[in-house]
């Protein structure tokens, strides 16, 4: 069994464990490479079908390629897609030209809160990884959020072996992180091996590509000539530029991610 097999088998174990414990679950799909890889693993865990809804929190500021990809694969993979937007905030003109923390909180965190309340999900699968950001490096595989949606990072439950925190109380939900132990390079090597489709923005055009995708105004591409999977994998083996260097959230202030995540950000 090689490195990718081990990661895959563990992720499938976690995915099945959470579904067994919580039943009323959903997977968050940002249409990026990580949550798309997660969806692929979910399809594997349930032998081809996704037995629960897939939720896209839409800020309305996403790239058009993202929307196109979403609709194409929703059909192909027969997904029960829920698109949820904070329509009120969007109508009131909330956008990244206002304060970034406020925009992320309203259009992502609050929209997510609202979706959880509306559909009554008890656990959510998320494709976050520990190597993405120092704050995410602190996460548990099953991570509780309280009734105010907050992450109590100073008092996380112990997680021994593969025994995770169980049965959330009614007023809280759990975040389930099957990809926590994967690196960016693992993801790309797995995408290549499994032939998982990804949005075209990740591949270089005119000397630039996106390492991380999201809302169009808040991510910028990195210098790169990697226009194939092999070239991306090679680039990642050599680069010392961080994955999220094109992300505005990470630049605002040292602790912006901590603040966002404590409030319930993904």
């Amino acid at each position: 069994m090689d490195h990718l097999d081990k990661l895959e088998n563990n992720s499938i174990y976690i995915i099945r464990e959470a579904y067994n414990q919580f039943q009323k679950v959903a997977s968050l799909w940002s249409i990026g490479k990580d949550s798309t890889t997660l969806l692929h693993l979910i399809r594997k865990a349930f032998l081809g079908e996704v037995p629960f809804p897939v939720v896209h929190i839409d800020t309305s500021y996403k790239f058009k390629e993202i929307y196109k990809f979403r609709d194409e694969y929703t059909k192909k993979w027969n997904l029960k897609l829920i698109v949820h937007r904070n329509e009120e905030a969007i109508a009131n003109g909330m956008g990244p030209n206002k304060a970034k923390l406020e925009c992320c909180t309203q259009l992502k965190t609050n929209a997510l809160k609202d979706a959880i309340n509306k559909y009554g999900f008890r656990a959510l699968y998320l494709g976050i990884r520990r190597d993405e950001h120092g704050i995410r490096a602190k996460e548990r595989v099953f991570s509780p959020r309280d009734e105010d949606f907050e992450w109590d990072y100073k008092n996380q439950p112990p997680e021994l072996w593969d025994q995770y925190k169980s049965k959330a109380k009614e007023e809280e939900h759990l975040r389930v992180h099957p990809l926590l132990g994967w690196t960016e390079l693992d993801i790309w090597e797995y995408i290549k091996r499994e032939e998982i489709p990804v949005v075209g923005l990740y591949f270089a055009k005119n000397g630039k590509r996106f390492r991380s995708i999201g809302c169009q105004p808040c991510v910028s591409p990195v210098e790169s000539n990697a226009d194939t999977l092999d070239k991306i994998i090679q680039e990642l083996k050599e680069t010392d530029v961080s994955e999220r260097s094109g992300r505005a959230q990470d630049k605002e202030s040292d602790y912006m991610m901590q603040k966002l995540r404590a409030l319930g950000y993904m």
Binding site: H3, R130, D131, H133, A137, K138, Y153, K154, Q156, Y255
Partner: peptide
């Protein structure tokens, strides 16, 4: 400073929770 990313950890100079960091040698990850 690389491992302790929580503000409380940096300000108090202690590690509160585990952090994972990744590297590789020629032999393995």
């Amino acid at each position: 400073f690389i491992m302790d990313h929580l503000r409380e950890e940096r300000e108090q100079g202690i590690t509160i929770d585990t952090a994972h960091t990744f590297f590789h040698t020629e032999k393995r990850a």
